[in-house]
Amino acid sequence: MASDPKHFVFDDVIKHNKTKDCWLVIDGKVYDVTPFMEDHPGGDEVLLAATGKDATDDFEDVGHSDDARGMMHKYYIGEVDKATVPKKRAYVKPADSNYNHDKTSEFVIKILQFIVPLVILGLAFVVRSYTKEKSA
Protein backbone atom coordinates (compact mmCIF):
# COMPACT_ATOMS: atom_id res chain seq x y z
CA MET A 1 0.00 0.00 0.00
CA ALA A 2 1.09 3.55 -0.58
CA SER A 3 2.59 5.33 2.43
CA ASP A 4 0.30 8.34 1.92
CA PRO A 5 -2.98 7.00 0.52
CA LYS A 6 -5.20 9.18 -1.61
CA HIS A 7 -8.63 9.94 -0.14
CA PHE A 8 -11.85 9.77 -2.14
CA VAL A 9 -15.45 10.65 -1.46
CA PHE A 10 -17.93 7.96 -2.40
CA ASP A 11 -19.62 10.04 -5.13
CA ASP A 12 -16.32 10.18 -7.00
CA VAL A 13 -15.71 6.45 -6.65
CA ILE A 14 -19.11 5.38 -8.02
CA LYS A 15 -18.49 7.17 -11.32
CA HIS A 16 -16.04 4.39 -12.18
CA ASN A 17 -18.60 1.71 -13.06
CA LYS A 18 -17.65 0.53 -16.53
CA THR A 19 -15.69 -2.44 -17.83
CA LYS A 20 -12.91 -0.10 -18.96
CA ASP A 21 -12.98 1.92 -15.71
CA CYS A 22 -14.07 0.00 -12.62
CA TRP A 23 -13.41 0.90 -8.98
CA LEU A 24 -14.60 -0.98 -5.90
CA VAL A 25 -14.82 -0.11 -2.21
CA ILE A 26 -13.87 -2.96 0.12
CA ASP A 27 -13.25 -2.39 3.84
CA GLY A 28 -12.95 1.36 3.31
CA LYS A 29 -10.26 0.94 0.67
CA VAL A 30 -10.65 1.89 -2.99
CA TYR A 31 -9.44 -0.53 -5.64
CA ASP A 32 -9.13 0.12 -9.37
CA VAL A 33 -9.91 -3.37 -10.67
CA THR A 34 -10.04 -2.32 -14.33
CA PRO A 35 -6.95 -4.37 -15.28
CA PHE A 36 -8.48 -7.44 -13.61
CA MET A 37 -11.87 -7.32 -15.34
CA GLU A 38 -11.08 -9.92 -18.01
CA ASP A 39 -9.20 -12.20 -15.61
CA HIS A 40 -11.67 -12.28 -12.71
CA PRO A 41 -12.79 -15.91 -12.27
CA GLY A 42 -16.40 -14.84 -11.66
CA GLY A 43 -16.45 -12.65 -14.76
CA ASP A 44 -16.57 -8.89 -15.14
CA GLU A 45 -20.31 -8.87 -14.36
CA VAL A 46 -19.56 -9.74 -10.74
CA LEU A 47 -17.23 -6.78 -10.40
CA LEU A 48 -19.62 -4.43 -12.18
CA ALA A 49 -22.43 -5.51 -9.87
CA ALA A 50 -20.28 -4.47 -6.90
CA THR A 51 -19.87 -0.87 -8.08
CA GLY A 52 -21.91 1.93 -6.57
CA LYS A 53 -21.86 0.49 -3.06
CA ASP A 54 -19.59 -0.76 -0.31
CA ALA A 55 -18.69 -4.17 -1.75
CA THR A 56 -17.20 -5.53 1.48
CA ASP A 57 -20.07 -7.94 2.18
CA ASP A 58 -20.09 -9.17 -1.42
CA PHE A 59 -16.35 -9.79 -1.27
CA GLU A 60 -16.51 -11.58 2.09
CA ASP A 61 -19.57 -13.67 1.21
CA VAL A 62 -17.74 -15.30 -1.69
CA GLY A 63 -14.98 -16.56 0.58
CA HIS A 64 -11.99 -15.38 -1.43
CA SER A 65 -8.77 -17.32 -1.04
CA ASP A 66 -5.60 -15.98 0.60
CA ASP A 67 -4.13 -15.70 -2.91
CA ALA A 68 -7.04 -13.50 -4.02
CA ARG A 69 -6.64 -11.33 -0.94
CA GLY A 70 -2.92 -11.08 -1.65
CA MET A 71 -3.60 -9.79 -5.16
CA MET A 72 -5.66 -6.87 -3.88
CA HIS A 73 -2.66 -4.70 -2.98
CA LYS A 74 -1.74 -4.14 -6.62
CA TYR A 75 -5.19 -2.64 -7.32
CA TYR A 76 -5.29 -0.44 -4.21
CA ILE A 77 -5.49 3.28 -5.03
CA GLY A 78 -6.62 4.90 -1.79
CA GLU A 79 -9.17 5.21 0.99
CA VAL A 80 -12.83 6.22 0.85
CA ASP A 81 -14.26 8.68 3.35
CA LYS A 82 -16.57 6.24 5.15
CA ALA A 83 -18.91 9.07 6.13
CA THR A 84 -19.76 9.53 2.44
CA VAL A 85 -20.71 5.87 1.85
CA PRO A 86 -24.50 5.39 2.08
CA LYS A 87 -25.79 2.65 4.36
CA LYS A 88 -28.25 1.42 1.71
CA ARG A 89 -27.74 1.31 -2.02
CA ALA A 90 -30.33 2.02 -4.64
CA TYR A 91 -29.70 -0.06 -7.74
CA VAL A 92 -27.58 1.86 -10.22
CA LYS A 93 -27.16 0.24 -13.61
CA PRO A 94 -23.48 0.08 -14.56
CA ALA A 95 -22.62 2.35 -17.44
CA ASP A 96 -21.86 -0.52 -19.82
CA SER A 97 -24.96 -0.84 -21.96
CA ASN A 98 -24.59 -4.59 -22.47
CA TYR A 99 -24.46 -5.31 -18.74
CA ASN A 100 -27.07 -7.86 -17.71
CA HIS A 101 -27.68 -7.24 -13.99
CA ASP A 102 -29.95 -10.23 -13.46
CA LYS A 103 -27.54 -12.63 -15.21
CA THR A 104 -30.20 -13.83 -17.63
CA SER A 105 -28.57 -15.38 -20.64
CA GLU A 106 -29.02 -13.30 -23.78
CA PHE A 107 -29.91 -16.53 -25.57
CA VAL A 108 -32.70 -17.25 -23.09
CA ILE A 109 -34.05 -13.73 -23.49
CA LYS A 110 -34.14 -14.08 -27.28
CA ILE A 111 -35.85 -17.48 -27.05
CA LEU A 112 -38.47 -16.10 -24.66
CA GLN A 113 -39.07 -13.11 -26.90
CA PHE A 114 -39.84 -15.54 -29.71
CA ILE A 115 -41.73 -18.27 -27.83
CA VAL A 116 -43.97 -16.26 -25.49
CA PRO A 117 -45.90 -14.51 -28.29
CA LEU A 118 -46.34 -17.88 -30.07
CA VAL A 119 -47.70 -19.47 -26.91
CA ILE A 120 -50.11 -16.58 -26.41
CA LEU A 121 -51.30 -16.83 -30.02
CA GLY A 122 -51.69 -20.61 -29.66
CA LEU A 123 -53.73 -20.24 -26.49
CA ALA A 124 -55.90 -17.59 -28.13
CA PHE A 125 -56.51 -19.95 -31.06
CA VAL A 126 -57.44 -22.83 -28.73
CA VAL A 127 -59.81 -20.63 -26.71
CA ARG A 128 -61.41 -19.29 -29.88
CA SER A 129 -61.85 -22.79 -31.32
CA TYR A 130 -63.27 -24.08 -28.05
CA THR A 131 -65.76 -21.23 -27.73
CA LYS A 132 -66.90 -21.72 -31.37
CA GLU A 133 -67.54 -25.41 -30.72
CA LYS A 134 -69.53 -24.62 -27.56
CA SER A 135 -71.69 -22.04 -29.33
CA ALA A 136 -72.40 -24.32 -32.30
Rank of each mutant, 00 (worst) to 15 (best):
A55D: 05
D96P: 02
G122R: 00
K74I: 11
D39Y: 14
K29S: 08
E79N: 15
P94S: 05
L24Y: 03
S65Y: 10
K20T: 14
P117K: 03
K53A: 05
A90K: 10
L48N: 02
G70S: 07
L48S: 00
Y76H: 12
R89T: 11
Y91G: 02
E79P: 02
H73Y: 09
G63W: 06
M72S: 06
I111D: 00
T34L: 01
A49E: 07
A55S: 14
F107M: 15
K53N: 09
D66N: 15
P35M: 04
G70Y: 07
S65E: 07
K53M: 05
I77A: 05
V33G: 10
F59S: 03
E45G: 12
K93I: 06
P117Y: 02
L47I: 05
V62Y: 11
Y99K: 06
K29C: 12
I111A: 13
I77Q: 06
D67E: 15
K103S: 10
V119Y: 01
F107Y: 09
D81M: 04
G42S: 07
V33A: 08
V30E: 06
L118F: 02
C22H: 00
K53E: 07
G122D: 10
T34R: 01
I77M: 05
D61F: 02
F59H: 09
E38N: 15
K53S: 08
N98E: 15
S97E: 15
D61E: 14
H101I: 00
L112P: 07
V85L: 10
P94R: 12
D66I: 05
G78L: 12
G70W: 13
R69M: 04
D67H: 15
P94G: 11
V116K: 07
D96V: 02
A68L: 12
T19I: 11
K53Q: 08
G63F: 14
S105E: 03
V46M: 12
E38H: 09
A83L: 13
P94D: 12
H101E: 13
G28F: 11
S65A: 03
G28K: 00
K20V: 11
T19V: 12
R69K: 14
K20F: 07
W23A: 10
L47H: 02
K93C: 11
K87I: 01
V80I: 01
A49N: 15
I111N: 00
G122C: 12
